[in-house]
């Protein structure tokens, strides 16, 4: 699934990364706990999170994730956007809660990876 499709399914606002939105995502994970992402995530391009601080961007960077979706209507600040720009990480924001956002992507074919 392309990031462009993720944006459409989640009715999300694109905060940064217009030039990357045709990148293909093959799996995703949802978590507010970055240590869990570091512990259990592998080869997943998309992170859904309610955590809005620079460590969400850092964690995505460390794990080579290409896109972050902030759920529950949360918006990243300028320092986060700058960090995402440095590492080419697309930022999306959706009003949906975590459960619904994950469910919508999963039911549209973007599965997690064990």
């Amino acid at each position: 699934m392309k990031i462009r499709e993720v944006q459409a399914i989640l009715n999300a606002t694109l905060v940064y990364g217009e030039e990357f939105i045709d990148k293909e995502m093959i799996s995703a994970c949802g978590s507010d706990l970055m240590s869990d992402v570091l512990a259990y995530v592998k080869e997943q391009g998309l992170l859904l999170t309610g955590l809005v601080n620079p460590q969400a961007i850092r964690t995505a960077e460390m794990m080579d994730m290409k896109c972050i979706v902030f759920v529950r209507g949360k918006m990243p600040d300028s320092s986060m956007i700058q960090l995402a720009e440095e590492h080419g990480i697309v930022l999306l924001c959706t009003e949906y809660h975590m459960y619904k956002a994950c469910g919508l992507l999963y039911s549209n074919g973007l599965c997690g990876k064990e």
């Binding site: 706990l33 970055m34 240590s35 869990d36 512990a39 999170t49 955590l51 460590q55 969400a56 964690t59």
Partner: peptide, 16 residues
Amino acid sequence: RNLGFGAGMGLPNMKR
């Protein structure tokens, strides 16, 4: 915890 850490995973992850 507000940073997304502090859940007791740091040292275990480093060892893992």
